Simulated scan of single mutants.
Amino acid sequence: MKQLLLEIDETTEAKINAAAKTAGLSAQQWLQQIIDEKTVTTWPNAIKALAGTWQDAPFSEELRAAEGQDISREDF
């Protein structure tokens, strides 16, 4: 496994440590998770599973089918 030296200020370190503790992870695990989330190149499976699960919006002809016929315009 490679190592990375990263210089950060104390405020940023405190934020990382607090976020990692809240997530129940070590700072290293939390940073790895953030990097993985931000560099993903494919859609998550939960998003892929949504495809085809909702109804398509109706076309304008279907929406207007019950409205009747338009009348002819007057000539100028």
Rank of each mutant, 00 (worst) to 15 (best):
M1D: 15
M1H: 14
M1N: 15
M1S: 15
M1P: 15
K2H: 14
L4K: 14
L4H: 15
L5A: 13
L5I: 14
L5K: 15
L6Q: 14
L6E: 13
L6D: 13
I8A: 14
I8S: 12
I8Q: 12
D9I: 09
E10Y: 13
E10C: 11
E10S: 14
E10T: 10
T11R: 14
T12Q: 12
T12Y: 06
E13W: 13
I16R: 02
N17E: 15
N17F: 05
N17H: 14
A18G: 11
A18E: 09
A18N: 06
A19D: 03
A20M: 01
A20Q: 00
A20F: 02
K21N: 08
T22H: 03
A23C: 05
G24F: 02
L25H: 01
L25N: 02
L25R: 02
L25P: 02
A27C: 04
A27G: 02
A27S: 06
Q28A: 12
Q28E: 07
Q28G: 04
Q29N: 09
Q29G: 04
W30F: 11
L31N: 03
Q32N: 11
I34Y: 00
I34A: 04
I35S: 04
D36C: 05
D36G: 06
D36T: 15
E37P: 01
K38S: 05
V40D: 05
V40M: 06
T41I: 06
T41H: 07
T42P: 02
W43Y: 11
P44Y: 01
P44H: 03
P44L: 02
N45R: 10
A46E: 13
I47D: 02
I47E: 02
K48V: 04
K48R: 13
A49P: 01
A49F: 01
A49Q: 12
A49S: 11
L50G: 00
L50F: 04
L50S: 04
L50W: 00
A51N: 07
A51C: 07
T53N: 06
W54Y: 10
Q55K: 12
Q55M: 07
D56G: 08
A57S: 11
A57E: 12
A57T: 11
P58S: 08
F59I: 11
F59W: 09
F59C: 10
F59P: 03
F59Q: 11
F59D: 13
F59V: 11
S60E: 15
S60H: 10
S60G: 09
E61T: 12
E61G: 08
E61L: 09
E61N: 10
E62F: 05
E62A: 12
E62W: 09
E62Q: 12
L63V: 14
L63G: 04
L63H: 06
L63P: 01
R64W: 08
R64A: 12
R64K: 11
A65H: 03
A66Y: 05
A66N: 10
A66D: 13
A66W: 07
E67W: 07
G68C: 01
G68M: 00
Q69E: 13
Q69P: 00
Q69M: 11
D70P: 00
I71D: 05
I71G: 01
I71A: 11
S72W: 04
S72H: 06
R73E: 09
R73Q: 07
R73G: 03
D75V: 00
D75R: 03
F76A: 04
F76D: 03
